[in-house]
Nucleic acid binder design. Structure first.
Lengths: 124, 124
DNA sequence: CCGTATCCATACCGATACTG
DNA sequence: CAGTATCGGTATGGATACGG
């Protein structure tokens, strides 16, 4: 698919539904959770430790939304202590390449952006 | 670069700076503005009309942030009525492929996600 | 261990009115 | 035309405490 067609798509439906989905994906933690899950099955606590700064509340909420959207599956093991594991669904894994591409872009351009912000701050 | 390395990168610096940049890019309007600008030079009002639902205020704020980050250039023409045109910088254009990839992913999966939400809502 | 519930501060963002 | 300023509702998200 060409970039032109993509550009049309992004405005295709008046932007209503699409923006709702994008908002859901591009929030504070979702991309990070998806990237951290990657191909693995991960326990709640491990996930929490691998994502510095996320609160228990936000991790729960983010996982619930991803589960609701069919991007993450949740497995509860009947043990004590309880063990809950999360894993990307096939749809969730299909988000991985674009998500990592965006994250990669951000990483590559952090220095440039920070420099630009400093320069912008110094303008009269 | 492999996906594995990307996955490392996204957690590379403790996530502090990276998440700040990602938050800036992945907010309510930024991706939409970048995708709409595309390769063109666009006037403020035209931009506003091409992005359904954006308020004047949010368009201004979004453009100012993009300008500050060095992703968009702003040109004021000394005319009456005033004419201000925006255009992606080379750095801004480099964001286009990942941004459109993500938007494309979202478009493709809107039906699946909506269906999943309905199903999730019906669960006991 | 894996959540949920509550409180609270802040950030976001739309509406509106006003300026060069 | 292209903004800026201000107000106020809502959403976001951290901290904490508690429950299964």
């Amino acid at each position: 698919m060409s970039e032109y067609e993509h550009t049309c798509m992004i405005r295709g439906d008046g932007g209503k539904t699409l923006r709702a989905i994008l908002d859901q994906i591009c929030n504070k933690w979702t991309l990070l959770v998806v990237a951290t899950l990657d191909e693995k099955r991960v326990r709640f606590t491990d996930l929490r430790q691998q994502i510095p700064g996320i609160s228990q509340r936000m991790l729960t909420l983010t996982l619930r939304n991803l589960e609701r959207d069919g991007l993450v599956s949740r497995t509860v093991h009947a043990e004590v202590p309880p063990r809950v594991e999360y894993k990307l669904t096939p749809t969730g894994r299909s988000l991985l390449p674009p998500a990592l591409a965006l994250a990669g872009w951000a990483m590559e351009h952090v220095p440039h952006i920070e420099a630009s912000r400093v320069a912008y701050g110094k303008r009269t």
